[in-house]
Structure formats: C-alpha cells, structure tokens
Design a protein around this nucleic acid. Structure first.
Length: 760
RNA sequence: GAGUCUAUAGCUCAGUUGGUUAGAGCGCUUCGUUGACAUCGAAGAGGUCAGAGGUUCGAGUCCUCUUAGACUCACCA
C-alpha cells in the first residue's frame, strides 16, 4: 500500500461499481406482488438544472447517496433515479444574457429558432452535470436517467393537462398577475421576491382630496378613489363622481367606500388603479369598476397615458412628478418612505402587477388530499417542523397560474382557430424579419398562416377565445385551416411537479399501462431536498401524485440544510460566492468533501463550508488508509500460517472484548442514526470510534501482541469500512478490494456487501 | 401583522427521548515522536451552555418571559 491515500483512483472505483450493476436494481416479473416481500427502497433525485454546473447544494446529494448505499447494503432493491431539468425561465434567462453579450435579444428570433438555440445550449452543458455527479461518487442508476424534455416525459405532462381540463380544473382568466416586463412573462406569487426599499410617497391634489401614492404615473389608470366607510371627513363624497385635474386634461372618478382603506395612513384617501395594483384590482371587482391598462407588457406607458405614452415607467414617473410640481398639484414628498417592492426572482427587475389573460389551475380539489396526507401522517416530514409550514401553505393556497410567456418549455396544448377568434393578437416576424404585432382581424389578408406560424413569437388570446385541447389541422366548427397553437408554455413546476410519476413510467392516459418500475417503486421512499422548494416543488408533486394515482409520491420528505458561505449567505451564482465542490474534490478527495458535508451537521440547519473542515476530514480519510496499512504491516511482520476472521472467544483478552463491545455499540448507533436521518451524529460517532478507540487504543495495544490478535484487528477494520462506506465510499472500497486480494477473501464489492449486525 | 428557527470554548458547530466531571474540528500551550499516518501521539488552557423565572430528586436539554439575530408567509396606497 502507498504511504498515503491517493484519491486519483476514484474514477476507476466508480467504474467498478457501475460495471457491477450495483446501481441498477432489477424489477421482478410481478412487481406489484413482489413489492410487499422485497421492500424496495427508492429516491428520486431532485432534478438539477441540466445546464447548471455543480455547486455545494448539489454536493449535498451526498445525503441521498448515504441513504441509498445504506439500504442497498441492507439488501433492499434500491433505486436512486437521476435526471436533469430544462428549467424553463431559469435557462431562458441565462441564455438571454448570453444573447445580450452578442448584441442580440429574443425578439430577433421566431420561437422555433430560439427554442432550438436554447436546446443546443443546454445539450452542451448537460453532460458536464452528469460527469460531475459521478465525480462525487453518487450511486445513481444512470440507465434510468431522464431529461425533462424527453418526448415521453412531455407527452405524459400534456396528458395530465388534458385530464385536468376534462375534469374541469383548467380555466383561462384575466386577473392581475405578477408580470416582469424584462423577462416578458407572468409569474406565480412564489416567484416574486419582496424587498424592503426606501422610496418616495407623493402627496397630491386629487379633486377635493389630497392623497398619498407611491405611483403617481399610474393615475391615468385610476377609475375610482376610495375612503374608509367610517371616515367622517370624507363620508359626504361617497358615491359621487368627482372631477380631477389631470395632466392630460380633466377626468372623472367615482368615490367609493371600502374597508381596505386605513384611515390613519397618509390622508385616508386612496386612488384606485385596478389595472396595476392587486388591492385595487380586488376593489374593482367588489365595486364593479372599469379597468384601464396604462402600462404595456413592454414596460412602457400605453396610449391611455396621453402625452406620456411610450415612456418607461420610471421616465413617466419622473416626468409626471415634474409636471405636477410645475402646476402646483404636488403638496409634499416624503422621500424616506419604506415599503416593499416586488422584484423578479430571476432578473430582479421590478414586478409590474398587470392584468393579463393566463391559464389557471383550480387548486382546491388538488390541495385538499395533499393537506390530508400531511395531517394523517401518510406523508411524513423530517424535521417535523416543516409539516406545519406545509399545511399552513396548503390551506391558504390560491389557484395556480400555470402559463408562462416564454419559449423554453413545452407549449400548452391548446389550439385556436384564428377565424373564429379574430381578436387574437399576433406577434411574429414576417418573411423579411420585420416584427409584426397586430390583431388577426387586421392582417388576415396580408399574411398566410404559414408565414405567421413560421415567424411566430407569441400570441395573446382573449379569455373568451374558443380553443380545443386536441391537435387538429382544421377548425371543428368553421372548418378553417388557420389553426394556431397557444404560445404560452407551462410553468416549470407544472412539469417537474409530475417528476416522480413521469420518470417511473406512470401513464396518465391509461394508468394500467404504467411501467413495472412504477408498480415496484411508487410511492418512493424518501424525497430529500432543500427546504426552500417545499412549496414550489414538494407541494406540487404531492398534489399531482395524489390526483393522478391516489397515493403520495414519497412517504417521507427529508428537508436538508442550506450551504452558506463564510458570511452565512446562501451560495448562488448571482452573488458570486460559490465554492466549487469539484475544486475541493481535486484538492482533498471526494471522500473528504462528502464527510465534511455531513459531519456534525444538525438536521436542516444552515452550515458553513470551510476548507479547514474539509482538510480535517481529508486527514481522517488518510488515517483510515494508514490504519489499514499498519494492520497489514503488523500481519506481515507476524507472518501467520493462516489469515482468518474467525474470532475464538476463548482466547480474547480484555482489550479485544472492549473493542468488540464498542464495535457492537457503534453498529447499533450508526444504524439507528441512519434510520432517523441523524447523519451528523452518525458520522461523528464513527470518526471518534475509528480514530480514538480503534487507532489510538486498540491498534497501539496490538503492536505488542502475537497472531491471535489478527482476527479481531481485521474484523474491526472491515466492519468499520462497511459502516463508513456510505459516507466515504471511495477509500473504503479501495482498502476493501486490497484486503480481499491480499488475503484471498471472498470476492465482493463493499458497495454490494451486507450491512454489519450487532452480534449480541 | 402571523409563524418558524437560532443564541453552547477564540472561530465554525455537535449534544436524538432531561441523568454521572458539557463535546468535536480548527486555533493556542507544553512534551514526545521522523518505520502506520500529507504528520501522529500524550498532556493542558479555555465555557456562570444569551438573561430572568419556573417544573423536577436532577435542565444546555421541558415551560414562561426578556434581549439579540436569521428566515418564511401576508393585499397596505
């Protein structure tokens, strides 16, 4: 054996495992029946973005590898199913940044071309991600790898949409949504980051009132002004139409009374802009107010803003304020006003509340069973505190906007007849690559359907537009062949929410035709993921799982901790504080990195990755190597006639009994800790046992003994290797193979060996 | 506004159901080792376990309050 452990052999060991078939469980002929007897263990990997290079968060998949390796050693048929996500908006965002560097934008391309470009971009990076997961030693079944845009996966997702539609759970509506004018798409509530910012609160004259607003530029969209019904100051105005002096000339609004108004805030008067404020939108429904859109999807003021049309929101605000000041309409400005601004979680531009037609999923029927599953314990949480968060969220859930106005992702399978829906607005590049943006009725005689389809960027269909969810080449009603597919794509989570089903081969259209994998492994055993996608993903998977199969997609949700940098900040590419795990494996070996990610970590608490810690674990890995080397040297020196693992209990001295006793204890505690997800404790105990008890005490003592010590030495060593294998698979396997070879033991891989049992 | 979490050695953190002198890594001090160990070993300094009160034979561990910080959710102009 070499003087020190050399981690450069890891690749070969991985090949050894891979070629042995240990990663690929076999599914028996009668999976449903065999399942009860076999007790299969399965984990679906939280699919990383296919184009995303590895970061420490991915390295935490180590937790899953520990679980999987442990259960495999217990003899359970074990599946860890890997995958890659096309990651809708995330990927398109990254790609658009790349385009920007080249001086281009998404508007230079039709959607098919853009889609193909992004596809190629992702393909380049997808292999890298897989390579990196192999580097970290993850014992995933690569034969079952899935990519979220595989035709089979997508088809099933579309089938789910159809089923939801047929069950009456899909509808289109024009409500106020969180719209990012920079990304050009609407988002769900979860995708908006609210940031405390210091802004300005403008007090302006407004008919007989003075009112405070942060958004003077939206006054062109005002359709009412509201006061509190209990406010004696203003009660006399309620119900009146009042005339407001406007920058584009006078206009009238209605005075309404509504509890939403806080008498103590500002002057107790609020202007109501239903088109650009969620509260005002709600109020407009209560009071039947008209909606005026003064900001367009491009982030610029519309014609309704009169002379301000065409300005960006910020430009318009500046100009409006200046003009009002000039005309004495501004009373005062509070420039230290602290409020919360919604920002796009991707690009961090300000989110504009906008009224836009979107596709929605009625969520009540899906959420109810998903809530019940958590309450009844059918779905378990670890740590348990997340159960409460999950239930609270589920009980307050709202209908889900599943449409996104981006190209990167499966298009919603709905087809419109243009001749039946002449008010559909089309945005496309004509054959000369000029952008055309107009209603179909205005251009129907100028462009062929082929030209429109070929250059298509997006369409906006009124909410009452007729559509069909079956693909067709002619309209069933008017027989027109001018058919166009919805350009909205699905929210990424709509697809990944079905991931456990799709990857295991569940067939939505005909569940009886689902694959044997599904019958054998569903519901999966554990879903281990970062807690910050509990709502985004875990909740959605649970809803889809129960809706489609009647069963939860996983029995236990294990939420793990977040890796932070030295300042306690979450590592992210945008912050530039990412520590590359692959650099660490190069420097210290994969085992050292893996061990440092779980050693002494409390369940689901944040922790800091430091190089010191990784170095310390590298020393531990090396200690194991050298202890093994020393055991070998001791045995060589004694030159015994026969090497055996059989312990003769009659010949044991106190030191032997002591170490065997402690070995039994560590077997029990490690097993228990792994069963209860106490990886930190398990790894720490093993570290202490091996270093202190075995190396410092027992081996030191064995230096002066004869060959009768050999069986105990080897037994404790090999058992330790087994216990440590889930945590540090490479060094343990390498030593194990060396020992087998040298002492002619039965040939087997440690990965496939059996988990130690307490002998007492 | 509602909820959750954290507060333990100089630093980063363990301490699962309350039970003997509170632990690890790194750092620090002294000594010893260069034929297992990128060193390793032995010994050691260092903590009123945020503060106050309570339950208990016994609390870092359970309860209440206080203080400080982090996060999640929520429609405040």
């Amino acid at each position: 054996m070499d003087k020190a452990y050399n981690s450069s052999q890891e690749g070969q060991i991985y090949e050894l495992w891979l070629n042995s078939g240990a990663f690929t469980p076999k599914v028996p002929a009668d999976p449903k029946k065999a399942k009860l007897k076999d007790n299969p263990y399965s984990i679906i990997l939280p699919l990383p973005n296919a184009n995303d290079p590895m970061h420490m968060g991915h390295a935490l998949f180590t937790i899953q590898d520990i679980l999987v390796r442990y259960h495999r050693m217990l003899g359970q048929p074990t599946l860890w199913l890997p995958g890659g996500d096309h990651a809708g908006i995330e990927t398109q965002f990254v790609f658009e940044k790349k385009l920007q560097k080249e001086g281009k934008s998404r508007f230079d391309f039709d959607r098919q071309t853009l889609y193909q470009m992004i596809w190629d971009f992702v393909e380049e990076n997808r292999k890298l991600n897989q390579f990196q997961m192999k580097k970290l030693g993850f014992s995933m079944d690569w034969t079952r790898y899935h990519y979220s845009l595989e035709p089979k996966i997508v088809d099933n997702v579309l089938a789910t949409f159809k089923k939801l539609y047929n069950d009456g759970l899909v509808y289109r509506d024009e409500k106020i949504v969180n719209y990012c004018t920079h990304c050009g798409t609407a988002f769900s509530n979860l995708e908006v980051d609210y940031v405390d910012e210091i802004g300005k609160l403008y007090y302006m004259k407004y008919g007989p009132f003075i009112l405070a607003t942060t958004r003077p530029e939206t006054k062109f969209g005002d359709t009412a002004v509201a006061v509190n019904p209990k406010d004696k100051r203003y009660i006399k105005y309620v119900g009146q139409e009042i005339t407001i002096e406007g920058l584009n000339g006078p206009f009238t609004v209605k005075v309404i009374a509504d509890d939403m108004v806080d008498m103590k805030f500002g002057t107790g008067v609020v202007k109501i802009t239903p088109g650009h404020d969620p509260n005002d939108f709600e109020a407009s429904i209560r009071h039947h107010l008209p909606i005026k859109k003064v900001i367009g999807f491009d982030g610029r003021m519309t014609e309704l803003a009169g002379k301000y049309a065409g300005l960006t929101v910020n430009q318009a605000r500046e100009k409006v304020v200046a003009d009002m000041q000039e005309r004495g309409m501004l009373v005062k400005i509070d420039d230290q006003y602290q409020h919360r601004i919604g920002r796009c979680y991707r690009c961090h531009h300000v989110i504009e509340p906008m009224v836009a037609p979107q596709w929605y999923l009625k969520i009540d029927k899906l959420a109810k069973p998903a809530t019940e599953a958590a309450k009844s314990g059918q779905l378990k949480f670890f740590p348990t505190r997340f159960k409460k968060a999950y239930i609270t969220w589920m009980e307050n859930i709202r209908d889900w906007n599943i449409s996104r106005q981006i190209v990167w992702g499966p298009r919603i399978p709905a087809w419109y007849c243009l001749d039946c829906n002449p008010d559909i607005k089309l945005n496309f590049l004509d054959k000369n690559k000029n952008i055309i943006s107009d209603f179909y009725k205005n251009i129907k005689n100028k462009y062929s359907i082929d030209e429109i389809n070929n250059g298509l960027q997006s369409l906006v269909a009124p909410t009452d537009a007729a559509f069909t969810v079956e693909k067709t080449d002619h309209c069933p009603k008017c027989k027109s062949k001018n058919i166009i597919q919805e350009t909205d794509t699905f929210d990424t989570w709509f697809l990944s929410g079905q991931w456990p089903l799709s990857t295991l081969g569940f067939n939505t259209t005909d569940p009886s035709k689902s694959s044997p994998d599904f019958d054998y492994f569903y519901p999966t055993t554990v879903m281990d993921t970062l807690w910050d996608i509990l709502f985004f993903w875990v909740a959605r998977m649970t809803m889809f799982g129960l809706y489609l199969t009647g069963d939860v997609p996983f029995k236990t949700v294990h939420l793990h901790s977040k890796v932070t940098d030295a300042k306690g900040q979450k590592m992210s590419k945008s912050k530039g504080n990412v520590v590359n795990p692959l650099d660490m494996t190069e420097k210290y070996g994969t085992d050292a990195l893996r061990m440092s990610l779980v050693y002494g970590i409390a369940p689901a608490s944040d922790f800091v990755v430091s190089e010191d810690k990784i170095r310390a674990q590298r020393n531990f890995v090396n200690k194991i190597w050298n202890a093994s080397r020393f055991v070998e040297m001791l045995i060589d020196r004694l030159n015994p006639s026969k090497i055996s693992l059989d312990i003769d209990k009659l010949k044991l001295i106190d030191a032997d009994k002591d170490i065997l006793n402690k070995l039994n204890k560590i077997i029990s505690s490690t097993t228990k800790n792994l069963e209860t997800y106490h990886f930190g404790q398990a790894s720490e105990d093993l570290y202490q046992f091996f270093w202190k008890e075995f190396c410092d005490l027992y081996i030191e003592n064995a230096k002066d003994r004869g060959e009768e010590a050999i069986p105990v030495l080897l037994t404790v060593l090999i058992t330790s290797l087994k216990l440590l294998h889930p945590f540090i698979p490479f060094v343990t396997e390498e030593i194990y193979q060396y020992l087998i070879e040298k002492y002619n033991f039965k040939k087997e891989l440690l990965i496939s060996s059996s988990w130690p049992k307490n002998e007492n």
